[in-house]
């Protein structure tokens, strides 16, 4: 498959989705069903690989590109993932310029409160999947306390969590 065509097909999938894995049906339709350049098994492995590493789940698009055309295909996936992000800037410019108005300030504060609710809500499925015993519960609690009560660098919290997990797996 031509690299430009691959980029455009992946871009079509990313630009029509609004979060993580909602681009999946488009990719499945275009690459698995229509063009036959990707298998269902590969698509599943791509989603799993995207979740196994750090970063957004949307990175599975990079893995899809890799399955289709190797490393150059992965680069196309990366570009397709990055391209729509810049659409936010005109919106930020427009609203940022109006932020002196009381109504807009009130709206932004409302959004901030809703965003906090959203963060708590998206914690729940993650907690069900990852907080299963005393060790993982302790890690979640300690990271919450360290990140609210101290100014400790977040890198140390992540390193400490990985270390604790390794230790628990060894013991």
């Amino acid at each position: 498959m031509n690299l430009l065509v691959l980029y455009l097909l992946l871009l079509k999938a990313t630009v029509t989705s609004f979060s993580g894995l909602t681009s999946l049906p488009v990719i499945h339709h275009d690459l698995v069903v229509e063009r036959g350049v990707l298998t269902d098994r590969e698509l599943n492995a791509a989603v799993a690989a995207g979740r196994a590493g750090p970063g957004p789940y949307g990175l599975y698009v990079v893995s899809v590109g890799y399955f289709v055309r190797g490393v150059p295909g992965a680069v196309m996936g990366m570009l397709a993932l990055i391209t729509p992000a810049f659409l936010i800037i005109p919106m930020a410019r427009y609203l940022g310029g109006k932020a002196g108005q009381p109504r807009i300030r009130g709206a932004i504060e409302g959004v901030m409160a809703a965003a906090a609710g959203l963060l708590v809500a998206s914690t729940l499925p993650l907690a069900r999947a990852s907080v299963s015993d005393a060790v993982s519960g302790g890690i979640a609690l300690v990271s919450f306390v360290l990140l609210t009560a101290t100014r400790l660098d977040i890198g140390w919290v992540m390193l400490g969590a990985a270390g604790a997990g390794l230790l628990a797996a060894v013991l």
Partner: peptide, 23 residues
């Protein structure tokens, strides 16, 4: 698997902390 599981558990604490820090 152990290390990744703990990183996800830390992410739970991190998101709750962010919500609290925002409010």
């Amino acid at each position: 698997a152990g290390a990744i599981g703990s990183l996800l558990a830390a992410a739970v604490g991190m998101m709750l902390a962010a919500a609290w820090n925002l409010l």
